[in-house]
Write a protein that binds this DNA or RNA. Structure first.
Length: 403
DNA sequence: TCTGGGGTCCTAGGACCC
DNA sequence: TCTGGGGTCCTAGGACCC
């Protein structure tokens, strides 16, 4: 089963505030250059879509109501949804904050037919949370994901093995999860636009063009997918921790960029400590005013969760770059993660780490910037950091993040 | 007042080692 | 008398997902 919440953030806001119900609304971030994170179905009717900027959304739908997103509300709702799913199977794999796969293979002896289970889950979510969702049931994840999107909102679609061929034959390839714009174009150049022909395509030709992925593409065209629902036993470790921000205005001044990098590094480091992880690779991402985006990475001799070290590495990368245009976005990512915990390695500085954890405790208790780095305490850099969480953020599955 | 933010996975090429 | 063949590690960048 694949379950996908309907217009999740927007629906949560409409549930929380009756004045928004039945109205075209869009959940956005707080910064000036924000975009629509989720539009309610009322707004979608006007053509408002995720990723659109406010002006475009307003142009399409003059009566649209913008709501600045509230992460805590979505995290709470997401955890409640997952709790419902976990009543029916131990194998629940969060795919994003508003989607999950559930393996119901072993659930039928306890709970009956899968379609009945799906209906019960939808009922529990509706009654318990006041939210609707769309559910797909199928022999594998690829098809379940496809099915959940076929009758949105409030849908329940079953794809039986016998129907797979008929459903896929004329289906555009980009409807499958995993085939995006670039692959769609490349397939089109080979004369393949729909799944039927993809499933019958020459395996060698696909392999020549797409490498090992070519084999998978052919199988996808046939509706074959052997991947398993990860579930609790296969809980995945986080691979990277990153933050990025689009600046309120484009910036060329290096000192200004260094401050932003320190702030981002601080957020990254704090999160790493909370997860009990250290990372030994630092990446800096830069987006120019013309949207050209690139990144540079640097490996560290030892893994760290210290904002000062992460920031120093990212700043060194910045120093090596020859910036050609004003900068629109900067991002800092920590990867090559390993268990860091509070156990000290041979070369770790115990005093320093105690200080960092003490800062965390103070900030946990008194608010996020109760103690911070001196260079960040300037009148023009204390802006709130309350951008809307990404729908891809995982409440579980990777590791828990508290807000 | 055009175009967010957080991720994963894969590939390709160069450095380096034996 | 042109210049092997493995392997690993590292970096850059792209495709894709929500």
């Amino acid at each position: 089963m694949h379950l996908d919440m309907d217009a999740f953030f927007a629906s949560v806001e409409q549930r929380a505030n009756p004045a928004l119900r039945g109205k075209p609304i869009a959940v956005i971030g707080s910064s000036g250059r924000t975009v629509v994170t989720t539009a309610s179905y009322e707004a979608r009717r006007f053509g408002v879509k995720t990723g659109m900027n406010k002006f475009e959304a307003r142009r399409l739908c003059p009566d649209i109501i913008f709501v600045v997103g509230d992460n805590a509300k979505y995290v709470d709702a997401s955890e409640r949804v997952l709790a419902v799913l976990e009543r029916f199977s131990p194998l629940v794999e969060p795919f994003s904050i508003d989607e999950a796969f559930v393996d119901l293979t072993g659930s039928t002896s306890l709970f009956g037919k899968v379609s009945d289970i799906a209906r019960e889950i939808k009922r529990l979510i509706r009654d318990g949370l006041g939210l609707t969702c769309s559910v797909g049931l199928a022999p594998n994840k690829l098809l379940a994901k496809l099915a959940s999107g076929m009758e949105k909102p409030d849908g329940l679609v079953v794809i039986k093995p016998v129907d797979v061929g008929r459903i896929l034959e004329g289906l555009p390839v980009n409807e499958l999860c995993g085939i995006g714009p670039a692959t769609t174009e490349a397939l089109k150049a080979m004369g393949i636009a729909t799944c039927g022909p993809l499933g019958r395509a020459d395996g060698r030709a696909l392999r020549a063009r797409f490498g090992v992925n070519g084999e998978r593409l052919k199988l996808m065209g046939q509706g074959v997918d052997g991947s398993l629902v990860a579930g609790a036993s296969g809980e995945r470790e986080a691979k990277s921790i990153g933050h990025s921000t689009t600046l309120p205005r484009d910036v060329s001044d290096l000192n200004e960029l260094r401050l932003v990098i320190l702030k981002l590094s601080d957020m990254v480091a704090a999160r790493a400590r909370r997860y009990g992880l250290k990372g030994s690779r630092v990446s800096l991402t830069v987006r120019y005013s013309d949207f050209h985006t690139f990144s540079r990475r640097k490996s560290l001799a030892t893994a760290t969760f210290d904002a000062a070290i992460i920031s120093a590495a990212a700043t060194a990368i910045l120093g090596d770059m020859k910036l050609e245009k004003p900068v629109r976005l900067v991002g800092v990512t920590l990867s090559e993660l390993s268990e860091g915990g509070r156990q000290l390695g041979l070369f770790d500085d115990a005093g320093r780490e105690a200080l960092l954890f003490a800062m965390d405790r103070i900030n946990d208790r008194y608010g996020d910037s109760a103690v911070t780095w001196g260079s960040l305490v300037e009148p023009d850099t204390d802006d709130e950091d309350n951008g809307v969480i990404s729908p891809s953020w995982r409440p579980k599955g990777v590791r828990r993040v508290e807000f």
